[in-house]
Design a protein around this nucleic acid. Structure first.
Lengths: 107, 107
DNA sequence: TGCTTCCGTTAGCGGAAACTAACCGTTAGT
DNA sequence: ACTAACGGTTAGTTTCCGCTAACGGAAGCA
């Protein structure tokens, strides 16, 4: 279970450029140059972002010759989704309580 | 003028204190003082965080006398969860493609 | 009316993040 | 072995974020 870094996962997805990288990586594994060519930032920035994403457990690295292929980790994404789902269900439950206690109009 | 969307749910959930506020709010609507009493920050910080969360559409405000009751918005949470779910499914599809192809493939 | 409570706002400070540019190691090809 | 390509790392700057402290405004109560 490498989902202990879910707290960092939110910080990792906070940046827009990083979400763009995740979006590209979700469609298939890619190298650094591939990603950098599709984004308005340099390879250094992409490399640093990938390090953060890898450190958060969201992506995994695979060395192929002189290239590094990065791919998205579905498990970490599912962990964040699950945590978000918990908030969602609790909020729905709180809404249900309010709906029960409001049979009449209040101030 | 800036065209970036200030209502970024991901940036809002990036901060740990803000996630703590969301967690408290998920269990039921509360006022600012209520939340600040449960967190190691002042009311000003909580108020600012609530402003960011409200601007992101994650929480909604309701004025009751001299207090403001804040509550979590399940719809916004579901939207983030859905977006995360899309990444998850795409990553799984990418994994399926790699798993189907034989490991003798070279490039 | 006067007072208290509750909350939002502003100013300012300290720290962290994002980005570019330059450097170095590694790998593949000739 | 030499060269070119790919990628990680570092230094440095700039910008943004989170927090506290102080101030001002609005509602409730005697």
């Amino acid at each position: 279970m490498d989902a202990n870094q879910s707290g960092d996962g939110w910080s990792a997805l906070a940046d827009g450029t990083r979400r763009a990288i995740v979006s590209r990586l979700a469609e298939g594994p890619q190298a650094v140059g591939q990603i950098a060519a599709q984004l308005p930032v340099t390879r250094s920035a992409v490399s640093q972002h990938l390090k953060i994403l890898k450190d958060a457990g969201l992506v995994s690295e695979q060395a192929v010759g002189t290239r590094r292929i990065y791919r998205l980790n579905p498990t970490a994404v599912a962990a964040l989704r699950d945590q978000l789902d918990t908030f969602w269900q609790r909020a729905l439950a709180a809404y249900a309580e309010v709906a029960e206690q409001a049979p009449e109009e209040n101030r």
